[in-house]
């Protein structure tokens, strides 16, 4: 019976995160629109879009793997969610977090990318091949400083459990990792820019360069699945950073404010900078973020 209640809370958490993700994305669009001197889309737009996409059917076929791409992607996003503790001390909103969940979540981050790469490759579009090679190159270098930051805080807190890392940061703002381990936070926050793929790191879809491929070939329900994943993933990745570096959240309001601000960082950078080329992006992650990550590991090893 307890597992059923737990599952219901997990589904409730997923529902909240999905809707908050859509609210967060439309809020960002509104903020960017206001900076640009526009009104932007109405607040209900993402729900309308999602409903419309799920109500549409595809009439052509690109092969099974092509259609499994978005499914893998969604599995990655939901996988991260399932093992992510959301609210500190909450028995039900801690999801299925366990002692080594941090490693599993890092794996799930790459899982979705790989699935998407397989699906996009199946489309046969040369643009997809370019996008996939760019995406995997960038994500590999994004993961390096992030992994070093994670290793550093794992050594610092002597655990690979996100719940224990969050618990160790309770008791005051100065206990947050951002103050106790600023190098790891710096490395991770810079990686975050790449993980969210806003400009200057929006190389995979790369409007004006290689826009043909997954963004246009995945449509109808498949695009709906990708949009659903994006809404979940953006929040849950922000929650991961919140848990690791900013003291976690003791309630939903705190979670929403913190994850909103973390996500906003990448949007803020995105509106102020143009896009890198892939080699520039890779080199950028292999310089300052990697160096910060190495320093963070050396300090705590």
């Amino acid at each position: 019976m307890e597992i059923v209640i737990k599952l219901l809370y997990v589904l409730l958490g997923l529902f909240i995160i999905l809707n908050f993700g859509m609210f967060m994305s439309v809020s960002m669009r509104k903020i960017v629109a206001r900076i640009a001197g526009r009104n932007g889309v109405p607040f209900y737009q993402p729900w309308i879009d999602l409903t419309r996409l799920y109500a549409t059917r595809d009439s052509i076929s690109h092969g099974i793997m092509f259609y499994l791409g978005p499914v893998f992607r969604l599995s990655g996003g939901v996988g991260i969610f399932l093992f992510m503790p959301l609210i500190v001390g909450s028995q039900y909103f801690s999801n299925f977090s366990f002692a080594g969940d941090l490693i599993l979540i890092l794996y799930f981050q790459f899982f979705g990318m790989l699935g998407m790469a397989l699906g996009a490759s199946e489309s046969g579009s040369p643009h997809s091949a370019i996008g996939v090679s760019r995406g995997l190159s960038q994500f590999t270098t994004v993961e390096l400083p992030l992994t070093l930051a994670v290793i550093s805080i794992a050594i610092q807190y002597n655990t690979l459990s996100i719940s224990e890392i969050v618990n160790a940061q309770q008791g005051g703002i100065m206990n947050w990792t951002v103050f106790t381990n600023p190098f790891a936070t710096g490395a991770a926050m810079l990686s975050l820019l790449g993980a969210f793929s806003h400009s200057p790191f929006n190389l995979i879809k790369a409007p004006n360069e290689i826009p043909i491929g997954p963004p246009t070939e995945y449509h109808s329900t498949f695009l709906g699945v990708l949009r659903t994943n994006a809404a979940i993933l953006h929040v849950i990745e922000a929650v991961l950073f919140m848990n690791l570096f900013f003291g976690g959240a003791t309630n939903w309001v705190e979670l929403m404010i913190k994850s909103f601000l973390i996500y906003f960082t990448s949007v803020f950078v995105g509106v102020a900078f143009p896009r890198f080329k892939i080699e520039q992006s890779v080199q950028w992650f292999l310089k300052v973020p990697l160096l910060l990550g190495i320093i963070a590991v050396i300090i705590y090893s």
């Binding site: 640009a36 001197g37 200057p200 004006n208 143009p274």
Partner: peptide
């Protein structure tokens, strides 16, 4: 010119 590199904010100000 910046819009070609995904920095579209200036374009939107300019279009206004």
């Amino acid at each position: 010119q910046a819009g070609t590199l995904s920095l579209g904010m200036g374009v939107q100000w300019g279009v206004y």
